[in-house]
Design a protein around this nucleic acid. Sequence first.
DNA 1: AATGAATGAGTGTTCATTCAT
DNA 2: GATGAATGAACACTCATTCAT
Lengths: 203, 203, 203, 203
Amino acid sequence: MAGKTTRIQREKREVILDAALQVFSENGFRGATLDQIAGLAGLSKPNMLYYFGGKEEIYCTLLNRLLETWLEPLKQIRADGDPHKQIMGYICAKLEFSRSYPRESRLFANEILNGAPRMLGELKGPLKALVDEKAAVLQGWMDEGKLAQVDPRHLLFAIWATTQHYADFAVQMDAVLGDSDPDPIKTGSVFLEALFFKGLDPR
Amino acid sequence: MAGKTTRIQREKREVILDAALQVFSENGFRGATLDQIAGLAGLSKPNMLYYFGGKEEIYCTLLNRLLETWLEPLKQIRADGDPHKQIMGYICAKLEFSRSYPRESRLFANEILNGAPRMLGELKGPLKALVDEKAAVLQGWMDEGKLAQVDPRHLLFAIWATTQHYADFAVQMDAVLGDSDPDPIKTGSVFLEALFFKGLDPR
Amino acid sequence: MAGKTTRIQREKREVILDAALQVFSENGFRGATLDQIAGLAGLSKPNMLYYFGGKEEIYCTLLNRLLETWLEPLKQIRADGDPHKQIMGYICAKLEFSRSYPRESRLFANEILNGAPRMLGELKGPLKALVDEKAAVLQGWMDEGKLAQVDPRHLLFAIWATTQHYADFAVQMDAVLGDSDPDPIKTGSVFLEALFFKGLDPR
Amino acid sequence: MAGKTTRIQREKREVILDAALQVFSENGFRGATLDQIAGLAGLSKPNMLYYFGGKEEIYCTLLNRLLETWLEPLKQIRADGDPHKQIMGYICAKLEFSRSYPRESRLFANEILNGAPRMLGELKGPLKALVDEKAAVLQGWMDEGKLAQVDPRHLLFAIWATTQHYADFAVQMDAVLGDSDPDPIKTGSVFLEALFFKGLDPR
DNA sequence: AATGAATGAGTGTTCATTCAT
DNA sequence: GATGAATGAACACTCATTCAT
C-alpha cells in the first residue's frame, strides 16, 4: 500500500522535476517562476508545493541529482587503461551527455555562470578531489611518455568546455550552421577526437 | 550647448552601462533589478530611466555593443597570413578578452544559454556570415596542406568554447584549482597553444 | 455500538480541543493554524476536520466551554456568607484558575482584546446578568456596613484584572521578577489578600 | 527643502502608523494584514511599503515607540515625594493612558499575551531595571512605616493590571455595565484610589 | 536633469477547506 | 474513520514603470 502511494508521489515528483529542469535551464533560478513550472507540469502551484517545499528545494534537488551523474564519466578514467582510449572515451561520454541531457548541462552552466551560489561547496569539495585524483593519473601517463606534457587540469577544462559547448551553446551553433549539418554533435565528435588525439600525442 | 550636454549624457550612460554589465552578467536578465543597477551607478532609478527607456533597452544596448567587439578578433584572421600564427593570435586575443572582459563574456553566455531571445537575429545574420567567410579561409589553408583537415566551423567552436571557458566558468576553475595556480589564463594559454598547434598540424 | 463509538469520538474531540487550546492561546485565532493543532493532536488535518466542522467551530467550542467554568467561581459568592471570606475565597479561586488554566485565561483575554467578536452576546447576556446579581449582593454588604462603600462592579473588575494578570501577563512577570520569586502566584495571593482585605475594610 | 520633503514623509509615516496601531491592536501581529492597514491609511500596499520595509518593521516601530511612553509614568515616581501622592499619581497617570491610548495598551497586551516574541529583551532589560529601582523606593517607604508592608513588585503588577484593564477589557466592561456608567474610567479612578489608599495604609 | 512618490502586475508561499479513496 | 491529494483565496513582498514636481 505504502509502495503504491509512494509510486504516485514519485511519479508526480518526477513530472515536476522534469518541468522544473526545462524552465530552470532556460531561465536560470531567478528567471524561472513557479507558475511556469506548475503549468508545464500540469499542476496547480499549491499542489506542486505539496510535493516540494519551495522553489529553492526544487532547484537544489535538480542540482544534487545532476552532480552525481556529472561526475560519473570522469570517475571511469582508470590509470591502468590505455591513455588515448580513456581520454577519447571520456570525450565521447561527455558528448553523449550533451546530446542526451542538454537541459542538465545548461542548468549546470547557468549555476556556474551566476557564481555557483548553491554549488560552490560541491565544487570545492568532491569535484576538486576528483579532479586532483584524475589529474594525477594524467600526469602519470605524461611522465611515462604516453601523453604529451601538458597541464592535466587545463586539459580537463578544455574537454569540459568543448563538449559542454554542444549543449550550452547549441542555439548559437544552430544559428551559425544553419541547416548544413544535420548532426553537429557527430561532426563535433570527429573533430574533437582528432584534435585531442593529435594534440596529446607524445611525439 | 547641445554638445556639452551630450558629453555629460554620454558619461552618465557609460556609468549606467558599466553598472548594468556588472549586474546583468552576475544575475542574468530576469535576475537583475533596476534597483541594483541604479544603486551601483549611483543614480536614482527614475533618473536612470531618463537616460534609458527601460530595462530591456539597457540590456540590448549592452548586447549590441558586445557583439561588435565580440566579432572583432575573428575578423582579424587574414587569408594571406601564416595559418598557425593567425590561429594562435586568435586564441590569444580571445583569451585576453576573457581576462579583460569576463563580465561581457558571461553576459553573452547567459544570453545564449537562455536561448538568445534578444540576439538570435545577430547570430543567424552577421555572425553566421563572418563564420562562413572565415571557415572558407580555414578550409583554404587545409586544402593547401597547411593545416590538418578538420571541420573549420567546429574548430572555431572549440576555440570559442575553450577560451570563453576561462571567463564563464572561472568560479569552477578557482574552486578546482584552489590557490595552486596564480594565473590560470596564462597556464591555459600555454596549454591551448600546444593543443591547437599540435592538433592542427597537417602532418 | 453508538455508545462505544461516541466514547472514542469524545476522546478524540478532547485531544483536539486540548491541542487547539494550546495553539489558540499562544497565537490567537488568526495566528493559529490547523496544521499546528492537528500536528499537536497527532491527527491528520482532514481527519481532524471529520470531528469538527472547521477552525471556527473548534475555537467556538473552546470558548463556550470556557465560559461555563469562567463564571463558576463568581456564582459561588453567597449573600449569606461572610463578606470578607467570600471575597477572599473568590480571589483565591480566580488565582487558582490562573495557576491551573493559564491557557484558558489567555484564550479568553485574546478574545476580549480582539473585540470579543465571538463572545459579545455571552458577555452582554449571561455575564452581565450574573454580575448584576452579585453586584447587588456586594452592595447589600456595603449597605449593612460590612464592607467599604465602593462601586461593586469595579471591585469585580479589579479582582478579575489582578488575578487574571498572573496568567495573561506571566511572561512579563517572569521577565521582571527574574529568578527571585519561585512562586509568583503564591506571593501574589498574599499581596492581593492583604490589599483587598484592608482596602475593603468598612472602617 | 529637505525639511519639507521630510515633513511629508513623516506625515505619511504617521498616517500609516496610526492605521497600523488600529489594526494590530485589534487583530494582533499575525491577524493583521497589510491590506487592512493600507486601506485604512488610504494608501496602496506597495506605496505603504515604500515608507516601511515590511510588516515587521511597522509593528516594531509601534512597539518601540510604545515602550518609551509606557515606562514614562513609572519613572516619575520619586523617592523624596509623598508615598500616597506618588502612588495615586501613578495610578491616575496609568488610567489616563488607558483612556487616551487604549489601542496602545491593547497592542502591548497582545504582544505579551502571545509570549512577547518581539519585546522580551526590553522586558528583561530596561523594564526590569526600572521596576527594580522603583521597587526599592517603595520598599524604602514601607521600611519607614509610610506604607503597608507588601511585596512592592506585586503592588506594581496590581496597579498595571487594574489600570490597563480599563483599556484592554473595555469591551467586556461595556458589555457588563450596559449604559449605566457614562464614564467607567472616572468611576474606576475613584474606586482604585480608595482601594489602594486604604489597602496601602500602614496602620 | 533629477527625485520622491506611486502603482499594477506579478512572485513565492500559506492556509482552510474539499475531494477521492 | 482516516488519509493523500488538490485547490482557491490570501498574504507579504518585489519590481519595472510612470507621474508630479
